[in-house]
């Protein structure tokens, strides 16, 4: 174990722990723009810098490992003014019509600018931003909001490994683009939306993002209802409606989702959802009360069981409902109806 002091507070951490992790352990907030816990630190945004006693340069906390006897300052004057300068540099070329931005409320640039009291920039704008790309079915890309944290590029190349987004040009001309300046819809993009999930600003935003502000939603951790991978995700809910999905860090999904998990949630609130029980009357399915429907089922089952025995009844359970419901279904078929005619359609 290593003993160090951060902002005057002693802490013990194991070998290999970064300063950022030690700070998180102590509950000390460190601002980050490029950091993604599921990827190797790349230390490019420089927001997370801290001062380490005896070291001349500021150190990025995301990539610097702790050492024994280390003394760290996370909020010294030097650190704070450096972070403010970074924010000013970014703001100089950032389109600050936040009023119109779908990321309003969850934008990290805005949040840190507020936190660090940066009200504008002393620097000049020098960039000509590339045109917007709104060709994807699911999200929009506005390069004027991009702060080049490169999270999207890394997620696309290192986690999704789809190689759609890349860094183009160098130095101040660097921008995030697609091969041959294609549009998303004409590229090899698979619409997984993982780039959107990690964008800290309004550069990559869901088309639906303007319909809610982040403070209006609650998040519920759950498991994806599609394939058997079982990705963990958070449902974003506003006024009783699911308005978005964010990937969580599951054991099977390293903070990523696919096009279905990320975007195909519209069925939940869809008007076609069945809302009342139905019984076929005069050849038509017609709404009825629960009591009527359940009685109908119970009578029907009882009658057929009496006439033809329990094995004249069969049940197909589902690979989509929960374990508890599957259990109850098979228990009902076996213990209550009295037949082993229970199967599921999972051979498909």
């Amino acid at each position: 174990m290593l003993k160090l002091t951060i902002d005057g507070r002693p802490v013990e951490v194991s070998e290999g722990t970064t300063i950022l992790e030690a700070c998180q352990f102590l509950g000390i907030e460190i601002p980050t723009l490029c950091h993604l816990e599921q990827l190797k630190a790349e230390g490019s945004c420089r927001m997370c810098v801290v001062e380490v006693e005896g070291v001349k340069n500021l150190q990025v906390s995301c990539a610097t490992p702790c050492w024994d006897g280390m003394v760290v300052q996370t909020k010294s004057e030097r650190v704070v003014s450096f972070r403010r300068l970074i924010l000013e540099l970014l703001l100089a070329n950032h389109d600050t019509d936040c009023f119109n931005c779908p990321a309003t409320g969850r934008c990290k640039l805005y949040q840190y600018a507020m936190e660090y009291g940066v009200e504008g920039s002393r620097f000049v704008r020098f960039k000509e931003h590339h045109p917007k790309d709104e060709s994807s079915e699911f999200f929009n890309y506005d390069p004027s909001k991009c702060i080049l944290c490169r999270r999207c590029v890394r997620v696309c190349n290192d986690l999704q490994v789809n190689h759609t987004l890349s860094l183009k040009n160098r130095g101040p001309d660097t921008w995030v683009g697609l091969p041959f300046d294609k549009l998303f819809k004409d590229s090899n993009c698979v619409s997984c939306g993982n780039c959107v999930s990690v964008c800290p600003t309004g550069a990559l935003t869901a088309k639906a993002a303007k319909s809610f502000r982040i403070w209006e939603v609650t998040k519920t951790r759950t498991t994806c209802p599609y394939c058997g991978v079982g990705c963990q995700m958070d449902l974003l809910v506003k006024n009783g409606e699911v308005v978005g999905v964010e990937p969580a860090h599951g054991r099977a999904n390293p903070g990523i989702l696919c096009v279905k998990g990320k975007w195909a949630y519209h069925f939940i609130n869809h008007p076609d959802r069945l809302k009342t029980p139905l019984i076929r009357k005069d050849g038509q399915l017609q709404p009825v009360s629960w009591d009527e429907a359940l009685d109908y089922v119970v009578e029907g089952i009882k009658k057929i069981k009496e006439e033809s025995g329990p094995d004249a009844i069969a049940g197909f359970s589902s690979a989509r409902v929960t374990n508890e419901e599957n259990y109850l279904f098979m228990k009902m078929m076996r213990a209550v109806v009295g037949t082993n005619n229970v199967d599921h359609c999972a051979r498909l």
């Binding site: 394939c227 058997g228 359970s317 690979a319 989509r320 374990n323 229970v342």
Partner: peptide, 14 residues
């Protein structure tokens, strides 16, 4: 497994 809870449906004795 093709569907989210095929494994569970089988495990649960369906």
């Amino acid at each position: 497994r093709g569907q989210n809870n095929v494994q569970g449906a089988c495990d649960m004795g369906c």
